[in-house]
């Protein structure tokens, strides 16, 4: 297995995540797609850490996990608060603000 395979896999995962954010309608699923993007970045970082022979990439991956955890807390709090009012987590239903 060459390094390139891992990078391609990460790029595919990142693309799946990005497309998911754009096409899925449930806020929780959109959020999961963002998490998928972050994890594909972690895979890229660790692959590059291996190929360049530095440890920075691995350390950055740890930072990304911590920040992602903080983001989950804030994100779920916001999605919960809107769900409790509207009984829906669909991003099509949050349409009061436009034009």
């Amino acid at each position: 297995m060459t390094i390139t395979n891992y990078l391609v896999l990460a790029a595919i995962l990142f693309t799946i995540g990005a497309v998911g954010v754009l096409v899925r309608r449930n806020a929780i699923v959109v959020f999961m797609c963002i998490e998928l993007m972050l994890n594909s970045v972690n895979l890229t970082l660790i692959t590059f850490a291996r190929s360049t022979g530095t440890v920075e990439g691995q350390v950055i991956a740890l930072f990304v996990m911590v920040v992602a955890a903080a983001e989950v807390v804030i994100g779920l709090a916001i999605i919960m608060s809107i769900y409790r009012t509207r009984r829906s987590a669909s991003v099509d239903d949050v349409n009061l603000l436009k034009y």
Partner: peptide
């Protein structure tokens, strides 16, 4: 997430 992927590529 885009910023982070950019970071990873520049690192690589």
């Amino acid at each position: 997430a885009f910023f982070l992927y950019g970071l990873a590529l520049v690192y690589g």
